[in-house]
């Protein structure tokens, strides 16, 4: 009898918290704009690798639109240059945006093939960053965008570790995690994300996966599409057409 009471006591010690029961709904958020229903949308992006010219306009535009620090260590989007050499070795570098810096002109005779690959947050269907956030500061909206609540984020950086694509960084001033939002403030008002807006070759295609007429659905119909790191089963919503096998 005594023993049972003791155990009872121990169990009571477990901190009982309300949110244990009001179990965090993964997707939430009300309609922010009059007449806009997030349940009717699901955003994604297509990237036509063969169209990217590596000009870096998207990187600059993103930094301007979203107040991303100008330093090259903090990127919501960036562009990688791949060079496959004749000996099958692969060299990769990030495209720099400052015009004064001379481009590292690769030795042409040595090139087997070469191309640019734009990267950004994949807005995964099963985002590992959302799974690991200890305080629920990062979450998926009903229209499929992963956002960070910078008023709640404690800056533990577990999400940065958990992201397989290196899409997150710690904002140096806010000291909280930051990442691409698909320019959420633009897309809910019917505008395109800044990077898509300025892309001169339309290598980036933004659209609504729930609308049959959207550019993105057309892109998926017309191309062989692939996502990054499919084996990790995060189900990205950034789709690449004719992606080369060396891209990681």
């Amino acid at each position: 009898m005594k023993r049972r009471d003791l155990l009872k006591n121990l169990i009571v010690f477990l901190p009982v918290s309300r949110s244990f029961f009001s179990c965090a709904a993964q997707a939430s958020g009300t309609a922010p704009i009059q007449g806009y229903d997030p349940d009717n949308h699901l955003y994604g992006m297509g990237i036509e690798v063969s169209k990217c010219i590596g000009c870096g306009k998207c990187i600059e535009a993103c930094k301007t639109e979203n107040n991303v620090p100008q330093e090259p260590f903090f990127c919501r989007t960036w562009v990688e240059r791949y060079i496959v050499r004749n000996d099958k070795s692969v060299a990769v570098e990030t495209v720099r945006t400052t015009q004064k810096e001379t481009r590292a002109a690769p030795n042409e005779k040595d090139i087997l093939r070469s191309f640019f690959v734009p990267k950004l947050c994949n807005q995964c269907e099963h985002p590992p960053c959302v799974q690991v956030c200890p305080v629920g500061a990062t979450f998926q909206t009903r229209d499929g965008v992963v956002l960070v609540d910078s008023d709640r984020c404690i800056g533990c950086r577990y999400c940065i570790q958990a992201c397989p694509f290196g899409a997150r960084y710690l904002h140096p001033e806010k000291r909280t995690a930051d990442k691409c939002t698909f320019c959420y403030h633009r897309v809910v008002k019917g505008l395109l994300p800044a990077c898509v807006e300025v892309c001169p070759t339309q290598a980036r295609i933004f659209g609504d996966l729930k609308s049959k007429a959207s550019q993105l659905v057309r892109f998926q119909r017309m191309n062989n599409v692939h996502v990054l790191k499919p084996h990790l089963n995060t189900e990205p919503k950034v789709y690449y057409s004719d992606l080369d096998g060396v891209v990681t």
Binding site: A24, P134, V135
Partner: peptide, 21 residues
């Protein structure tokens, strides 16, 4: 932590799918 003053949130709004929570 980037924001140590918010550490208490881990008790107030724990994300149950997070190992760290």
């Amino acid at each position: 932590l980037g924001r140590p003053e918010r550490a208490f949130e881990i008790f107030l709004s724990p994300n149950l799918s997070s190992a760290m929570a």
